[in-house]
Design a protein around this nucleic acid. Structure first.
Length: 346
DNA sequence: AAGCCGGGGTC
DNA sequence: GACCCAGGCTT
């Protein structure tokens, strides 16, 4: 039995019933693929339902405000995905008359769509024979074929793409692509896979040579840096607070946050209080400062650990700028801020 | 080629 | 703690 037949037989028996498997509509497949980039199915599924419900067509998404798209994306992370998704929806509507591109080459022109996502959409929706290579495929192929080329190197990416393209079932590329990803996710798992029930157990080179735990090979790891964040939560007499939109480069682009004072080292009360006094919005005002969280909240991103303090600043005067606290949940915020807003009793 | 970009889960 | 996730963009 050849590779594809073995794989698809396994898939037929073991596949999950997932919402996006019941459609070939490229708009829905696109939504699912963007949502699932670097995201597990269990985490992404609620967002898939939310997006298809709130934006049933590409026109609905294109007509939305970016802020509404970010709000719906809140909590999922990698927010450039949401901004690019919105950009591409407008591009499809304005430049393509709302017709979704139907070839790998044209799908690749969408922002936020790279080789993997273009291959997935082109094969699943349009039966184009373009092999997908995601984290699951890297793991499965590196083990079955005993390939030790680092998967995050340029030669590795080319080698695995070529191998997948050679293996793909040209009669049913849509099924093959979904099958190999599902196989990597459910059978050829990162840790402790049950190789005794694997359809490739007799031929898998990694199993034969006891290399399951060391494959796939990956080049180094990005080192994590520590940052010290102080969020200034202003509460005025007229029940307003200040939210600022993050602009420019860096994390959480275009999301909102309380005014942020970043320090080189853990801050002290006196240290922060003097900096709060210099905030323009509080010029010549009397206020009281107290620390909300006794111990730092450590928010972990992929390459930063944010040691976070929330400082509550009560102002016994009215402020003119700022937003009504009653409307605070309308703004898209990073989950670190969102958790605080949910817990804090304004 | 290397660094950056989230949040949640497993082991 | 280390590693992973239906990756892609910027420098």
């Amino acid at each position: 039995m050849n590779f594809s037949t073995k794989l698809i037989n396994w898939y037929t028996v073991n596949k999950r019933d997932l919402p996006w498997r019941s459609t070939n509509n490229p708009y829905y497949i696109w939504l699912s693929e963007i949502i699932l980039q670097q995201t597990q199915v269990v985490q992404g599924t609620p967002y898939y339902h939310a997006f298809t419900s709130q934006f049933p067509t590409v026109f609905d998404l294109a007509n939305a405000n970016e802020e509404d798209v970010l709000k719906l994306w809140q909590g999922l992370g990698y927010y450039s995905r949401a901004r690019n998704l919105h950009w591409s929806a407008k591009y499809i509507v304005n430049e393509l008359d709302g017709v979704f591109p139907d070839t790998y080459k044209d799908i690749l022109k969408l922002k936020g769509v790279g080789d993997y996502t273009a291959s997935a959409i082109a094969s699943i929706c349009f039966n184009e024979v373009t092999a997908v290579v995601d984290g699951n495929v890297y793991r499965a192929l590196s083990r079955i074929f005993g390939i030790e080329t680092p998967i995050n190197s340029t030669p590795g990416q080319k080698e695995f793409k070529a191998l997948a393209q050679q293996l793909i079932d040209k009669q049913q590329p849509a099924i093959f692509n979904q099958a190999i990803m599902e196989f990597g996710a459910r059978q050829c798992k990162p840790k402790n896979p049950d190789c005794s029930v694997c359809p490739f157990k007799t031929s898998c080179l990694a199993l034969k040579e006891n290399k399951i735990a060391v494959l796939p090979v990956k080049l180094k790891k990005t080192k994590v840096t520590k940052k010290y964040f102080n969020f200034i939560v202003i509460i005025s007499k007229n029940e307003k607070t200040i939210l600022e939109q993050r602009i420019g480069s860096g994390i959480w682009q275009n999301l909102y946050q309380f005014p942020l004072i970043e320090t080189e080292k853990p801050s002290t009360y006196n240290n922060i209080k003097s900096k709060i006094e210099n905030l323009d919005v509080l010029a010549d005002m009397n206020f009281d400062v107290h620390l909300y969280n006794d111990t730092d909240i450590i928010h972990k991103l992929s390459h930063q650990h944010l040691y976070t303090k929330f400082w509550i600043v009560s102002v016994d005067e009215c402020i003119e700028n700022g937003i009504d606290i009653s409307n605070i949940k309308d703004y898209p915020v990073p989950i670190l801020i969102g958790n605080f807003i949910d817990k804090f009793n304004f």
